[in-house]
Amino acid sequence: LTAALLRIRYNVHASPGNLNNQWGLPLSLLGLEANHQVMVAEMAMSQANEISSLAVVANPSIGVITNVAPAHMENFPDLAAVAAAKGELAQQLPTSGTLIVNADDPHTDAMPEKMAPHVVHVVRFGCDASADVRATNLVSISDGWAFDLHIGSASRNIELRLPGAAGVSNFLAATATAHALHVPIDEIAAEASKLEPLPNRGAIHRAGSITLIDESYNASPLAMHMALENFAALPTAGRRIAVLGDMLEMGDWTDQVHRDAGGKAAEIKADFLLAVGACAGLMAEGAAENGMAQETIHAFDTAEEAASWLAPRLQDGDTVLVKGSRAIHLERVAQAVTTAPVGSNGVMES
């Protein structure tokens, strides 16, 4: 999103794919050419001191910290440690740099004062009244949102085809970055309606009467919770089928976050839960404990098993959410949902 908005005015090079760690980031930087004006570099964070090392390599002048949420918890004792690891980016910025943080997230909102008091230029984004780049009057529309975008005293109405609250927040982060590099609000507003989700990151596909929400790229507890909330809000003519995969590297949090995911599927009244991976049993337990009928809960070891079970049982009007860590390969379930042939009775045939 950030690269797309910056391309309005600049020749941009962005990290391709997920080249964001100690090996991937240098490869991304090697793609820079003399005519590039801006580099948008993604930095991975799976342990302490990782971002600080990457920042030494990339030498950023603008740092964007979107949120602090449970992720890679096998390497961190608590969320404060996650915040400290992400805050390494703020610490590495020069005094003349720009720090962009999420005003709706207390951990990131506190970073300018706690971790980067030397950085003079701070931009906050979010829905909170304190945000410099802010969204108000949000209304859910087909596959996205309509809202008023405020940058300082200027405001414009936006139609954004990015589903879920995370889509709005990510757009605001990108907008804050574009604003810091002097892209006008009118040009940002015009570009907003053209933005689309990246593959496997919330894209909505329709295959006949079947709707697929493909979130198979990755998963964390907060992202899983938000995906299920968005799933519940999306209108459907048929059943809601949640296909949820393991969330990896959660350490001591593993049991609870997977039970919570299953419980959330029950809370939103999903008609079926297909849990996939080593923690499928934990998700199944959480769903059952929260009142989901046992006959609507199914656990599978692999994505292939889940896909084989689901495809022939799909019915007209079904909506399917697919979300899990990348290593679970739920994109194979997504592919099965969108490519299975439809019989004359409207039921997917094997």
Rank of each mutant, 00 (worst) to 15 (best):
T339W: 00
A232N: 00
P163K: 03
P312F: 13
R239A: 08
L274R: 01
N75C: 07
S61R: 13
L89H: 01
E187P: 07
N20S: 06
A227V: 05
V57R: 10
A83M: 02
L162Q: 08
P77K: 09
T319C: 09
M348R: 15
S28T: 15
N75A: 03
T98F: 03
A110W: 05
T302Q: 06
G31F: 09
E289F: 08
T175L: 08
F76Q: 00
V168Q: 09
R124W: 03
A303H: 01
M39D: 13
D301S: 11
D271V: 10
E349P: 00
L321K: 02
L310A: 12
V133N: 04
A166T: 13
A278K: 12
T177G: 10
V68C: 06
A131C: 09
P184A: 06
A58W: 02
N75L: 02
S325M: 07
T95Y: 09
V342F: 07
A275G: 04
G31T: 07
Q22S: 14
V342Y: 12
A190S: 12
I268V: 15
A81W: 01
P199E: 00
R156D: 01
S61G: 13
H118T: 10
L282D: 11
T211I: 13
G291E: 00
A174Y: 00
L282N: 10
A55C: 08
H150S: 12
V342N: 13
E191P: 06
T98P: 11
M73Y: 06
A85T: 05
A34Y: 15
L30P: 07
T95L: 12
L19W: 07
M224D: 01
V12M: 10
I8H: 02
Q47T: 09
D260Q: 09
E33W: 11
G343N: 15
A219D: 02
F231R: 05
S220R: 11
H258G: 01
L19F: 09
H329A: 14
K114C: 14
N200M: 15
N20C: 10
L89W: 00
S308G: 09
D271N: 15
P117Q: 04
G291A: 02
N21A: 06
P60C: 04
P60V: 03
N18W: 06
S220N: 15
E42Y: 09
R161E: 08
I158G: 01
H258M: 00
V133C: 07
E74Y: 05
V122N: 13
G31R: 11
F147E: 04
A81H: 04
P70C: 14
G263M: 02
R124T: 10
G324L: 02
N75F: 08
I62P: 07
